[in-house]
Design a protein around this nucleic acid. Sequence first.
DNA 1: TACAGTGCTTTTTTT
DNA 2: AAGCACTGTA
Length: 796
Amino acid sequence: MIDYLAGLNDAQKEAVLYTEGPLMIVAGAGSGKTKVLTTRIAHLMAKGIDAFNILALTFTNKAAKEMKERVERILENRDARNLYIGTFHSVFARILRTAAPKIGFPNNFTIYDTDDAKSVVKTVVNELNLDDKHYKPNVVYNRISQAKNALVNPTDYATDYAIQQEDMRSNRPAIAQIYDAYVKRCFKNGAMDFDDLLLKFYELLKNFPESLHKYQHKFKYILIDEFQDTNPAQYEIIKLLGAVYENVCVVGDDAQSIYSFRGATIENILQFQKDYDDVKVVKLEQNYRSTQSILHVANQVIKNNKGQIPKNLWTENIVGEKIRLVRTLTDNDEGKFVADTIQEQKLRNHFNNRDFAILYRTNSQSRAFEESLRRMGIPYTIYGGISFYQRKEIKDYIAYLRIIVNPKDEESLKRIINFPARGIGKTSIDKAILFANEKNISMWDVLTNAALYGFKGGTLEAIDNFVLMIKSFGSMLVTKNAYEVAIHVGKQTNFVKELFNDKTTEGLARYENVQELLNSIREWVDNQQNLSQIDEDGIILEDTPANAEDGNAPVAGRSRGEVGLSTYLQQITLLTDADEKDPNADTVKLMTIHAAKGLEFSCVFAAGLEESLFPNAMSINTREELEEERRLFYVVVTRAKHKLWITYANTRYRFGSLIQNDPSRFIDEIPEEHLDRSFAGGGLKNQKTSGWDSGSAFDRMNRGFGRENKNRAEKPSYLVPTNKPQLKEHTPSPDFVASDTSNLQVGQKIEHQKFGFGEVIKIEGSAHNPVATVKFDLNGEKKIMLNYAKLRIVNS
DNA sequence: TACAGTGCTTTTTTT
DNA sequence: AAGCACTGTA
C-alpha cells in the first residue's frame, strides 16, 4: 500500500487518524474532502477493520463511484469490493430487497421514480373525486415528499396543526387525505417511491430490534458525505445505526447546503453536536482548487449570509485573473458569447473541451448554449433533462419487465395493458380498476379472474390471453437472465415490431432507443456474470471489478438473482442521467449548479445572473430561501479553478415571449476590485447605428475580455448582424416607473424600457398569465408577458 | 375509437 | 416554444 498519509496537511491528517468516536469534518469548498474520506477508509482498513464493517453514504452514484475507485487506488488491492459505499437510496434499497417482507412489502417491490409517483398521485386524486387542476400532482407529490422526509406519516400529517394551517392557506385541505390514499396505493402496488427507501428502512430499524441490532453491529464505522444535505429521515437512520459504536464521521460544509427544498436541514449539523457529547470537530480550511481571486469573491459573497459556521477558507494558489463579468443583450447573445469565448480560450491557452463548464440555475437555460456550441462545432454534454430511462418507449418496455416481476404494480400494468393494441380498451380498464378498488384487491387479481367479474366475449378473450402471456413470462424468471427475458418479451408482445413498423423519424428513434436498452441490459448481464459477489445478506455488491484469479468466485447456491430481471430493475431506477455519461469525455459540460456540486473545472461560466432567474423568483420570499440561493452562488463560484466568467442577459425568452431582467443582486455583492466588466453584443446606449457591427462595440468587447484577441481578424459571430430584425435601442424616460398592468386595456399607450413606446393591440392568455401584444413605434410587434415585464402606462 | 386541432400551463433545483 | 389534455370530427 502506498504511504497514504503523505501529502495530507495537518487538519486532513487529524481527520483521517481520529477513527474512534463521533467526528464532524467541516470541509470548505476544494479543501480535499474526498481525499480525506477515502484516505480515512484506507486507514481504517490498514488498522485491520474489516471492509464489511464500513459503511459510506453519499448522495450521488457519481460520488460513490469515485470514492470506491479512489479507495481501491490507495489500497492497491481488491479488499475495497467488500465496502458498503453507495448512495443512501441504493444501499437501503439493497437491504430492503431482503428485509421487505418484515414490513409487509414483497421482495420484488417496484421502485417508483418521480414520474411514477406523480402518476399515482394523479390516480388517487381522481379517485377521490378531487380536481387535479387544483390538486396538481406536482404540488401534492412535493408536499408528500416533504412529509416523508421529515418522518411525518399520514396520521401525523392530518393532525399537525401547522401543516393543516399551511394546506388551508393554499386551499388544499385534502392533501392529508391524498397522502393517506397514496401510501395505501403504493403499498397495494407493492411499490416504494424514492422517499420510501429511506422511510421504510427507518421503520425497519425502528420496529424490528433484531434488524437494528444486526445493522448496528455490521456497520461499525459510518461515514456520511455531504452531511449538510441530509434530511431528518436520513439523520435518524444514521443516529440509529451509529448508536452502539458511535463511530460516525460526517463531512459537510454549511456554506454548500443547497437542497433544503428537498427536505434537507442544516439543523442536522447542530443536532449532531447535541446528540453526541464529545464530537470532535476538524475544519479543513485550506483550499487547493481555486485562485485567490475566485476564493475572495466566494468568501465575500457568502459573508452576506447570517449564521454560517465561522471558517476561514484560504489558499496558497496564485492570485489569478479577475472575474469577468459580461453583459449581453439577449440569452442568445449570452450563448454566442460563451461558445465564442470557449473557442478562443482553446486556441490561445490550449484548453481542452473538458476544461469548460457552463453552469446555470435552471435546466431550460441550456438551449441557447446548446445551439451556439453546436454552431461552433464544439462538442458538449448536457447533464440533467430527461434521462434515457424516462423516455416513453423505454418506460413502456420497462413497465412490461416490472409487471413480470411484480404484477401488482398497477402503474406499469396500465401503461402496457393495451400497447401494442390488443383489444383491451379504456372502458375495460376502468371497469377492472373499479372492481379492484371495490374488493380492495389488485387490478391484476381482477384480470386473472376476468370471467368472474363479468368480462365477456372478445374482451374476456383478450384479457385471458394477456394474463396468460404475462404469466408465461413470469415462469422464465427463475431460469433466464434479465436479457433473455427482455428479448423474449419484446418478441412475444410485438412491442419491438410495433416500433419497427413505425417508419417516421420519431418512430425510428424510438426503435433505436429500444435496441439500445436491450444492448444495455445485455451489457449489464455480462458484467454481473463476471464480477458479482454476494454477501451474507444476499446483497449484491455492485461495481466490483472482475478478478477471477483471487478466488472470489460468485457465491454458488443462490438463485439467479445476480443476473435476474428483478435486480436489474432495482438498480436502473436509481440511475440518473449523469450515470449514463462519461465525465472524462473531452466535451464541454453543461449542467445546473445543483448538478455541479462536488465537481471542479478549469474554466467556469456562471450564466444567467439575473434577478428572478438567479436568485430565482420562487426563492426570494424568505431570508432562508434567499440565503440558499446565495449558497448556490457560492457553489458555482467555487467550482472554478482558474478562470471564471459571470454572464447575464438583459432580455431572455421565457415561455415563448421576451422578458426583461435586472442583473442579479449577487453581482453587487462582488468586490469591484475583483471584477472585470465588459459587454458583449450590440445595443450600446446612445449608439445611432442599428447594428452589432459597429466598431465601438467590438473595441469595448476587446477591452472586456483580454488583450489576447486584439489582432483578431474576424468578428465573433455574435457581433455579426443576423437576419433577425435588429433591436432599436430605446433610452427609458427619466421618470420611468413600472405601472400596475393588471387592468391593461387594448388601445393603451405604454413604454417599455428596452423597446420604447408602443400601443397595446391585443391581450390574450389566461387571467393568471396574461400576454399583451404591443406594437412598438421603433421595434414592431412583440408579445409581452405581463407577469414579468415592466411597463409604464403612458395614457389611459 | 383514433386522431387532428385547439387552448392552456409550464420552468427551480434531484436521489 | 413545446408538451399535454380536452374536444369535436370522421
